[in-house]
Amino acid sequence: MTEFNLYQFEDELYEKGITYIAGIDEAGRGPLAGPVVAAAVILKKGAKLNYVDDSKKLSEKQRQKALIEIKEHALAIGIGISSVDEIDRINIYRAAREAMHSAIKQLKIKPEFLLIDAMPMEIDIPNKSIIKGDQKSISIAAASIVAKTTRDQYMIEMDKVFPLYNFKQHKGYGTKEHIELIKRHGYTPIHRKTYEPIKSMIKEEIRKKHEAHTLF
């Protein structure tokens, strides 16, 4: 049982006559590989969910159960993705925010209010940014699970494309094993070039090319 009342923010908004509340969260700011994925979820008014909690607290099996429950109780779900190229081009913070904007646009119902995990957003919908929102709001917790399971599924697919890297296990995060595999096999197109150790590997490649070029 969670210490915080996960329904508090939503109940306060319902009391003010607001029906369509979207929780917004993202997954994948930290990994060395793969996109950042955001989700927006509007739950049915007064929905009570048994399996939903902050996605980081749940096992993979628990998240799958929670996902089924979210789909049963959601009025609308939107998903936004920022690619590795976008992350490297505009930085992870901005890429995460872009993915969130995209997720909101994907909702088939226009939300009247947004509850956002930690990220302040400039948007024409009334909103509240909540630090550790995935632990304090049922809508944000639902969004965190949708974002995490979507991203995990993508990384499982990438494991088939790049079988040497064990993406299905670490999902692109910088585990000791993952870093060793990058050093052994090099980086892939889905690795983030602005993240270490890939950033230093690219610098080294450029330096060697430059040296080789000056020899001739």
Rank of each mutant, 00 (worst) to 15 (best):
A47V: 11
A47M: 10
A47R: 07
A47G: 11
K48N: 09
N50K: 15
N50V: 14
N50F: 12
Y51T: 04
Y51S: 13
V52R: 01
V52H: 06
V52Y: 05
D54G: 14
D54S: 13
D54M: 10
D54R: 15
D54L: 08
D54F: 07
S55L: 06
S55M: 05
S55W: 03
S55Y: 03
K56P: 13
K57S: 08
K57I: 14
K57A: 06
K57V: 07
L58T: 09
S59M: 09
S59A: 07
E60P: 13
E60G: 12
E60Q: 15
K61M: 08
K61L: 10
Q62Y: 05
Q62P: 06
Q62R: 15
R63E: 06
R63Q: 12
Q64D: 08
K65F: 09
K65R: 14
A66H: 11
A66W: 08
A66K: 13
L67N: 01
L67C: 01
I68K: 14
I68C: 01
E69T: 05
I70H: 08
K71V: 02
K71G: 00
K71R: 14
K71L: 07
K71H: 12
H73G: 02
A74C: 08
A74W: 04
A74V: 04
A74D: 04
L75E: 13
L75T: 08
L75R: 06
A76D: 00
A76R: 03
A76G: 01
A76K: 01
I77G: 06
G78M: 05
G78F: 13
I79C: 03
I79K: 11
G80D: 06
I81H: 12
I81T: 15
S82G: 01
S82C: 01
S83M: 11
V84T: 11
V84R: 00
V84K: 03
V84P: 03
D85K: 15
D85A: 15
I87A: 05
I87Q: 02
I87V: 14
D88Q: 02
D88F: 00
D88Y: 00
R89H: 09
R89I: 01
R89D: 05
I90R: 11
N91L: 05
N91H: 15
N91K: 04
I92R: 00
I92T: 01
I92W: 02
Y93T: 14
Y93E: 08
Y93P: 00
Y93N: 12
Y93W: 13
R94Y: 07
R94K: 12
R94L: 05
A95M: 02
A95H: 00
A95T: 04
A96N: 15
A96Q: 05
A96Y: 02
R97P: 02
R97S: 10
R97H: 13
E98C: 09
A99M: 12
A99Y: 11
M100Q: 03
H101F: 13
H101Q: 09
H101C: 09
S102L: 10
S102P: 03
A103K: 11
A103N: 06
A103F: 10
A103D: 11
A103L: 07
